[in-house]
Computed example of a mutant assay.
Amino acid sequence: MRFLIIYKPDHRAPCGPENMEEMEKRVDEAMKSGALLATGGLVPEGVKVRRKEGAVTITDGPYAEAKEMVAGFALFELESMEVAVESSKDFLRYAGDGECEIRPLMEGSRFADRD
């Protein structure tokens, strides 16, 4: 299964430079194994594009509060949600305080079932 893992840091406890080397090593290992398909950090600027009742609005953002900031993402191919949870727990040991939101991707017939 594919999982999108979204990281939201606790801004009071950012990842320190002492952990970056180990985190980079683990990212490289996960990429080489094929489990990690893509990853990246996100800058705190952007826009929201919203459509409601046919009207489109664009607002600066995308965050109403700093605690909502998404700092990064990772796209994994893993065996189960349990493995995704363990991967997230491992990541947080190096990233520092914050949270990871794990979202399974709809694929194949699961996507077709939405109709």
Rank of each mutant, 00 (worst) to 15 (best):
V85S: 02
E68T: 04
G41T: 05
E53Y: 03
T57E: 01
V43E: 15
F73S: 09
A55H: 15
P44Y: 01
E65N: 11
T59M: 02
A71P: 09
E79N: 10
T59C: 03
A84F: 09
S88V: 06
L92D: 01
K67S: 13
E53T: 07
G40K: 01
T39H: 10
A38V: 03
E65H: 12
R50M: 05
K48H: 07
E77C: 10
G98N: 00
G54F: 00
A64C: 07
A64K: 12
V43F: 14
L75D: 08
P62A: 06
G46C: 05
M81A: 11
V56E: 02
G46A: 07
E77L: 10
Y94C: 09
V49T: 07
G46S: 04
S88A: 13
K67M: 13
R50W: 00
I58C: 06
A84K: 09
A66C: 11
G72D: 03
L78Y: 03
D90K: 12
A55L: 15
V56I: 12
E68F: 10
P62N: 07
L75S: 08
V70N: 03
K52M: 08
D97A: 15
S80C: 05
V83Q: 14
Y94D: 09
E82R: 12
G54E: 01
I58N: 02
K48V: 10
A64L: 13
L78P: 01
A66R: 14
A66V: 14
G54A: 01
A55C: 14
E65T: 12
V49Y: 04
E79L: 08
L42Y: 01
S88Q: 05
T59S: 09
F76R: 03
L42S: 00
K89L: 13
M81R: 12
V56C: 04
F91A: 15
G61C: 07
D97H: 14
A66E: 13
G96L: 05
A84C: 09
V83N: 10
F76E: 03
P62H: 07
V49D: 00
R93D: 09
R51E: 11
E45P: 08
V70P: 02
L42M: 07
